[in-house]
């Protein structure tokens, strides 16, 4: 589904990602862990198509298409979703209006009519139930005045509404309380099918207890320095990153 080959990315001529290769197949869950500033969000943003990054080398393919040729919204239309580490606020735009616009723009790109209001409301109701969200969210301005945890849950709500092929969760667990973490994990597991894939960025292995990854990658200083099973996450949580630095002799 997603094939990243030897990706090098700079910001203002400073190299941030230094040769990343990663393949995600449908049905798989990958986790990326790594210290602050190692380039995790940069990688997510580059996959999602944020401008302001210089791709100096390498390729990204999604279902055989060259992603680097496409705009952010075109990538979204292909089914790439990013749950942001820091979701932005859009004052005056309600959660409902925003998700409606997003869904209908995605449908438009596929040549479909807007989703009938009834169907939309039904889907919204189902998803809010799945994620234990209160109806009052729907009429609030997007992320404005939301608590950290509420913002994250709203990201997963959008994910569940848009049902992407590849969902990147950038530290969605940070800021969630224990109950919310379980609910979000349950949501993700419910949405999981053999046809879609998840890339989960996290600092803590706790989320990975609920959403069990097929692979865990360690991103360090712009490179994937180690790949393993979910046990790797446990080892990291126990021992920190120093042993990896030694092991890979950086």
């Amino acid at each position: 589904m997603l094939k990243i080959k030897n990706l090098h990315v700079s910001v203002d001529d400073t190299p941030i990602l230094k040769g990343i290769s990663l393949e995600i197949k449908k049905g798989e869950i990958h986790a990326i862990m790594g210290p602050n500033g190692s380039g995790k969000s940069t990688l997510s943003n580059v996959i999602a198509g944020k401008e302001d990054y210089q791709i100096t080398q390498g390729t990204i393919e999604f279902e055989g298409k060259d992603l680097l040729e496409l705009s952010a919204e075109e990538r979204a239309h292909l089914g790439i979703f990013l749950s942001f580490q820091y979701p932005v606020e859009i004052p005056g735009v309600s959660v409902t209006n925003f998700i409606k616009t997003a869904i209908n723009e995605n449908r438009k790109a596929k040549g479909l009519e807007p989703m009938p209001a009834k169907e939309l409301l039904k889907l919204i109701r189902e998803r809010m139930e799945l994620l234990n969200m209160d109806k009052s969210f729907l009429s609030r301005s997007l992320n404005e005045g939301f608590s950290g945890g509420e913002k994250k849950r709203n990201e997963i709500f959008q994910l569940s509404m848009l049902q992407p092929k590849l969902a990147i969760l950038d530290e969605t667990d940070s800021g969630l309380d224990i109950d919310a973490l379980r609910i979000v994990a349950k949501g993700v597991n419910t949405l999981r099918t053999p046809e879609n894939a998840f890339l989960i960025i996290t600092h803590y292995q706790r989320l990975l207890e609920y959403i069990v990854p097929d692979f865990v990658h360690v991103l360090y200083n712009g490179k994937i320095v180690k790949t393993g099973s979910k046990d790797l996450a446990l080892a990291l949580e126990e021992k920190g990153y120093d042993w990896i630095k030694e092991e890979v002799a950086i």
């Binding site: 979204a76 979703f81 723009e105």
Partner: peptide, 13 residues
């Protein structure tokens, strides 16, 4: 730009 990118990411041109 962040607001616009957020929308773009959700498929909104």
């Amino acid at each position: 730009e962040d607001q616009i990118f957020y929308c773009n990411q959700r498929g909104i041109p």
